[in-house]
Amino acid sequence: MRILTSDPLRRVLLGALAALTLAGCSDNAMTGRRQLAFVSDEQLAQMADQPWAELRAQTPVLRDPAARARVVRVMEPIIQATGRTDLAWDVVVFDSPEVNAFVLPNGKVGVFRGLLELVGSDDELAAVLGHEAAHILARHPAERVSHQLATQAGVTLAQLVFGGENGENAEMVAGVLGLGATYGVLLPYSRSHELEADRLGVELMRKAGFEPQAAVRFWERMIARQARQGAPPEALSTHPGDERRLSELRKAVAA
Results as ranks from 00 to 15, higher is better:
209 G>T: 07
4 L>H: 13
155 V>W: 01
54 E>A: 10
56 R>E: 12
142 A>E: 10
39 V>L: 12
239 H>L: 01
230 G>E: 11
240 P>N: 06
10 R>A: 13
177 L>C: 00
147 H>I: 13
189 Y>C: 11
176 V>E: 07
110 G>D: 08
34 R>L: 14
164 G>M: 10
250 R>G: 08
69 A>F: 06
239 H>Q: 05
247 S>G: 14
97 P>N: 02
224 A>I: 07
83 G>W: 04
157 L>I: 10
183 Y>C: 10
251 K>D: 06
197 A>H: 08
85 T>E: 13
126 A>E: 05
103 V>R: 01
166 N>E: 09
133 A>F: 01
89 W>F: 02
166 N>F: 13
58 Q>G: 10
144 R>E: 11
22 L>Q: 06
92 V>P: 07
201 G>Y: 07
223 I>F: 14
104 L>G: 14
164 G>L: 15
151 T>S: 11
108 K>T: 02
3 I>V: 11
126 A>G: 03
222 M>H: 02
185 V>P: 05
96 S>K: 13
254 A>N: 12
232 P>Q: 01
100 N>P: 08
192 S>W: 09
182 T>K: 10
22 L>I: 05
200 L>K: 04
81 A>D: 01
22 L>F: 06
107 G>K: 02
47 M>H: 09
131 H>K: 02
248 E>K: 12
101 A>E: 04
142 A>W: 07
111 V>D: 00
54 E>D: 09
54 E>P: 02
198 D>C: 03
38 F>H: 09
249 L>D: 02
162 F>G: 01
87 L>P: 00
255 A>E: 13
49 D>Q: 14
155 V>F: 05
197 A>E: 03
222 M>P: 00
107 G>C: 10
8 P>D: 01
32 G>L: 07
166 N>A: 13
102 F>I: 05
71 V>D: 00
3 I>M: 00
173 V>W: 02
237 S>R: 07
186 L>N: 03
27 D>E: 12
172 M>V: 12
60 P>R: 01
186 L>E: 05
36 L>E: 05
96 S>R: 14
43 Q>H: 14
37 A>N: 13
215 A>Y: 01
132 E>A: 00
121 S>G: 03
102 F>L: 07
12 V>N: 15
64 D>P: 02
153 A>E: 00
132 E>G: 00
45 A>D: 04
28 N>R: 09
11 R>S: 12
201 G>W: 03
175 G>D: 03
77 P>S: 08
205 M>W: 06
231 A>C: 08
192 S>I: 09
242 D>L: 09
177 L>T: 01
235 A>E: 09
133 A>I: 00
145 V>A: 09
243 E>D: 15
51 P>S: 07
11 R>L: 14
143 E>R: 08
